[in-house]
Design a protein around this nucleic acid. Structure first.
Ligand SMILES: [Mn+2]
Ligand SMILES: [Mn+2]
Ligand SMILES: [Mn+2]
Ligand SMILES: [Mn+2]
Lengths: 216, 216
DNA sequence: TTTATTTTTTAGACTAATCTAAATTTTTTA
DNA sequence: TAAAAAATTTAGATTAGTCTAAAAAATAAA
C-alpha cells in the first residue's frame, strides 16, 4: 500500500493535469501547501514506484497504475461526501475536510458497499462525477454561466470553486445543484449577470458567473 | 491533535489497565506489536503532553485527559463497527480492521451524527458498550459460560476473545449475541459444556466456555 | 545571443516513529 | 541477601516527510 502522503501527491497530480498534459513541481507544491524541494523528493519516490513518469525539470504525468490509484482516492472522496450530505445531513460546504481524511481509508470492500448502500450515485454534492469501482465515470458537459447569452437557459450542475465561502454564498442565494436558471440580463459594464430561477431574480458578479457551471 | 500512533498507544494503555491499575511497557509493546524500546520513547512523549502518569520502571496510568481521548477513540471504533454491521451488512468478524482505521477520523461532528443516524446504539456488534458523547457508558455485568452450573440460563452478551476465528466459530454454531442459552451438561473430565439453545444442543470446549460471556 | 529571472533540484538538517544492542534497574530465586 | 533472570531504559541508527539555503537548469527579456 501507499502512504497518505503518496496518495495526496497522486491526487494532486491528477487534479493538476490538463487532459493529456503534465504538472509542474511548483503547481504540486501550491496544491499541497508544501515546498518545491519536498515535491522533488516525493517525485523521485513515486517515479521509483512507477506511479508517475518523471524526468528532471520536465514536470510529471501519472502512469496507468498511478492514475488508477488517484481515481480510487477520488472515488472514495466523492462517495464519502455524498454519504455525509445525504445520510448524515451535513451541508455541502461542510464535507470536504472530513472527506479528505475518509478518502484514505483503505478497505475497497467498504467503499463498494457504501456505494451500494447509497444506490450507486453518479455525482457528488458539488456535481463532480463519482468514478465507479472500475475507475470509470462520465463527466457532465459543463460551461460557466458567464459563457451564456441573454435568455439562454440551463441547469446548475457544478462549481469551479469548491471553497466553503463560495458554496455558502450559493446556498444563501439558492443557486444550488439542480436549479434550472435563465440569464435575464447581462451588464456590459462589469459583466455581472441577472439570473432568473422560478420567479426569483438574482444579481451575480462576473466572478460568480465564472465559477457556476451549467449543463448544456 | 494527536497522531494516529499516539492515539493507538492511549487506547492500548486503556485496554491494558485493570480497573485502577497500571500497564507495563512490555504489555503495551505486545498489544501494539512493537518493541519495548519504542514504547519507552513514546511514553516519554505522552508524559510530556500530560496524557499519562509515568515514572521510569513503574508502568503507566492514563491521566484524565488521556482517558478522555482513549474513550473517544473507543467510541468511534465501536460506532463504526456498528455501522458496518447494521448498515453495510458486514459480518461481525470482518469489521475490526476497518474500524481500526476509521477510529482515527478526527471529526467529532461526524461521529456524533453517525451515532444519531443509527439511533444511538448502546453496544457494538461484539457486545462491548459504546461510550456516549461524554465518554460515559455502562458495561453489562458479564460472566463466562464456564462459571455457570448445570441448568443455569443466560443471554449471550459478549465475547472475551475478539479474534475472527473465534467469531466465525460462534457464527457457525449459532452462538451469537442475544441468543438465550441454558447449560445442559458439564463434563467434569475436560470441563466441556453442552449448551441448549431453543431445541439445538451444542457441545463446546472449556476454552470456548471461558470466552463466551452471558449477562446475569 | 547574452543577461536576468524563474523554476527546479541538491545539500544538509530536523522531527516522528521505529529498530537492535548494550546498559540499568527491578524482581525472582536460591 | 547475593546471584540470576526478567523488565526497562539508553545509545545510536534508520526511514519518511519536511524545511531552508544554495546550486543548477530552463525560460524570458533585453
Ligand atoms: Mn471535496
Ligand atoms: Mn466534492
Ligand atoms: Mn474491534
Ligand atoms: Mn467490537
Amino acid at each position: 500500500m501507499n502512504t497518505f502522503t503518496e496518495e495526496n501527491y497522486l491526487k494532486a497530480i491528477y487534479h493538476g493535469s490538463a487532459p493529456g498534459g503534465s504538472v509542474s513541481t511548483n503547481e504540486i507544491a501550491a496544491a499541497l501547501n508544501t515546498r518545491a524541494a519536498s515535491v522533488t523528493d516525493m517525485l523521485k519516490k513515486l517515479a521509483e514506484k512507477k506511479l508517475i513518469n518523471y524526468t528532471k525539470y520536465q514536470g510529471v504525468t501519472l502512469t496507468a497504475s498511478g492514475e488508477k490509484i488517484a481515481l480510487s482516492i477520488i472515488r472514495k472522496h466523492r462517495l464519502w461526501e455524498y454519504f455525509l450530505v445525504e445520510k448524515l445531513n451535513f451541508k455541502w460546504d461542510e464535507v470536504h475536510d472530513v472527506a479528505e481524511e475518509l478518502e484514505h481509508i483503505s478497505s475497497k470492500e467498504l467503499v463498494d458497499r457504501l456505494d451500494d448502500f447509497m444506490g450507486n450515485p453518479k455525482y457528488d454534492p458539488h456535481g463532480d462525477p463519482i468514478p465507479d469501482r472500475k475507475g470509470e465515470f462520465k463527466a457532465h458537459q459543463l460551461k460557466p454561466i458567464s459563457s451564456l447569452g441573454v435568455n439562454e437557459e440551463g441547469v446548475i450542475s457544478g462549481v469551479r470553486d469548491h471553497s466553503s465561502s463560495f458554496l455558502q454564498y450559493l446556498e444563501k442565494t439558492q443557486l444550488t445543484i439542480g436549479k434550472k436558471i435563465k440569464v435575464a440580463e447581462i451588464h456590459i459594464y462589469d459583466h455581472s449577470v441577472v439570473i432568473q430561477s422560478g420567479d426569483r431574480r438574482t444579481h451575480i458578479s462576473r466572478e460568480v458567473a465564472n465559477n457556476l457551471l451549467i449543463a448544456l
